[in-house]
Design a protein around this nucleic acid. Structure first.
Lengths: 143, 143
DNA sequence: TCTCTAAATGAAAATGATTATCATTTATAT
DNA sequence: ATATAAATGATAATCATTTTCATTTAGAGA
């Protein structure tokens, strides 16, 4: 289950941010895409319909959305930063290296591993990064 | 078990790369540090003793070392790219968010999870990213 | 609905990281 | 010792991201 455009808009307001037309457009672009998008990707996507939206605004909006965990930052694959739509529950991502599609999975609980590592290394675990890359079913069939 | 300066130098030669003084210095800086280092970090470290080594050379050397998997690229934490010394076996990393120390762990086999995901999602898994951040024992005790 | 104000925007410049270029130097095979 | 392809360093070019600041605007309250 992924967050919806309406849900994200409501969460923004709930946290005291203004719901500007520009922010609506950025949120719309992210919720409409199954892929991971860089700030430049989003700029290109929205620039046709909304040529007045600046890249700076996109950066600022993405930063807010990420800080509220309404979108997820991805690390695997490309070198630059990219984002995908968030979800209500904690989850991880599989990214298709061919088409860029992102699939969530929440069927894995990482906390036992965290506990084990904490015991073995003396670290107090604060966070983790777990992502997979691969080729999605469709891309495999098209090959 | 981590790779040694000698082992990395030998591997470089084995793959047909020349073992220049500059590369030796970069390799030395990485093997000498328990932390993750950005290209700029390494430049600062080596610049005192070897002011003639350019940042460009450091970038080029890091790229080669990473492509041969003699060093590991880290993603968690900082935004820029950073590296740490490699190891002979596949492993993952825990990074101290306070002091930057990197601890390896290889006590976790991710392949059952990969198989499960492949079955559930139809993806052919190609790679993964698994890192933890936390506070190491020493930093916790100093706090 | 109107007004006000803090927040948000966009354009531009500044910054910072990374890559490309190219003339010069050098590690190593012979 | 020599030849040569590879590597280097200085510089410039590129690209992503952040800062700045004057202007605009969403939304709270009258």
């Amino acid at each position: 289950m992924r967050l919806t455009e309406k849900g994200i808009a409501a969460a923004l307001k709930h946290h005291g941010y203004k719901l500007t037309p520009q922010r609506r457009v950025v949120i719309g672009a992210i919720t409409a895409s199954p892929d991971h998008l860089t700030p430049a990707d989003i700029y290109r996507k929205v620039h046709k319909e909304h040529p007045n939206i600046g890249l700076t605004t996109i950066y600022r909006t993405l930063e807010i959305l990420a800080s509220l965990e309404l979108i997820c930052e991805l690390h695997a694959g490309g070198s630059g930063r990219s984002y995908t739509i968030g979800a209500p529950e904690h989850h991880h991502h599989i990214i298709c290296s061919s088409c860029g599609a992102v699939v969530d999975f929440s069927s894995y609980d990482i906390s036992p591993l965290e506990a084990k590592l904490s015991r073995e290394t003396g670290f107090e675990i604060e966070g983790h990064l777990l992502e997979f890359t691969g080729r999605c079913r469709r891309c495999r069939q098209n090959a």
